[in-house]
Amino acid sequence: MTERALEAEHLRKAFGGVRAVDDVGFSLGAGEVLALIGPNGAGKTTLFNMLGGQIRPDAGRVLLFGRDITGLPPRRVWRLGVGRTYQVTATFRSMTVRQNVQSALLSHHGRAWSPWPRADRLYRDEAESLLAMVGMTDQAERAAGVLAYGDLKRLDLAIALAHGPRVLLMDEPTAGMAPGERTHLMDLTARVSRARGVAVLFTEHDMDVVFGHADRVLVLDGGRLVASGAPAEVRADARVRALYLGESSGEPEP
């Protein structure tokens, strides 16, 4: 068994009487790629937000390399080595693509508060190499607000990788991308994960991405964990098929 990077124990969260996440626990090993699937409203985003510090759980614990990080604010969680990408991409629209990455680098190097010098002169090269990694070099000077959807997703990933995270949380990383782009992005993610031992947890609706790229799969429904295991096991699980996949899926596409 590899080192445990991220563990969730008995996490619960309710909103106005509705149990969004109900007693969910799992562990994620260093260098492992874990997929989290389930219908909208199953509690995936709530779970993500509890892991990233955006929401404080009602009960349960989150451990990062054995350290209790439950309820820490997002910026502390980030400092401890958790990177995150968003379902609805959140980039900084008053900046260029490169400045977006530079913002994360400024924060990482402890220069976020400094009044000097001009921000876009700092960590240029580092930003460029992160952009190169996600294949965005030629768009570095463009406005972040005008990027195509797939490019926004890649920029989001570059920002999330800026501080060399040990755990990466990705909320629907490939939604809306073309098949080629999807494979490319997930291959890239897998490469980074293996090369740097980064643990990756991602949510996804596309079953081809899930079954093609995940080491293990978690299935969430109605806030509860209903199955977990290797992709093949989950795909064959009768309960998962009834609750989520439906009878006609699971077969290869025509």
């Binding site: 389930g38 219908p39 909208n40 199953a42 609706h205 079953m207 429904d221 009834a242 609750l243 989520y244 996949l245 439906g246 009878e247 006609s248 899926s249």
Partner: peptide, 10 residues
């Protein structure tokens, strides 16, 4: 169908 469980999509 975006974001619906495959079962609900049917």
């Amino acid at each position: 169908s975006e974001g619906l469980a495959p079962r609900l999509v049917e």
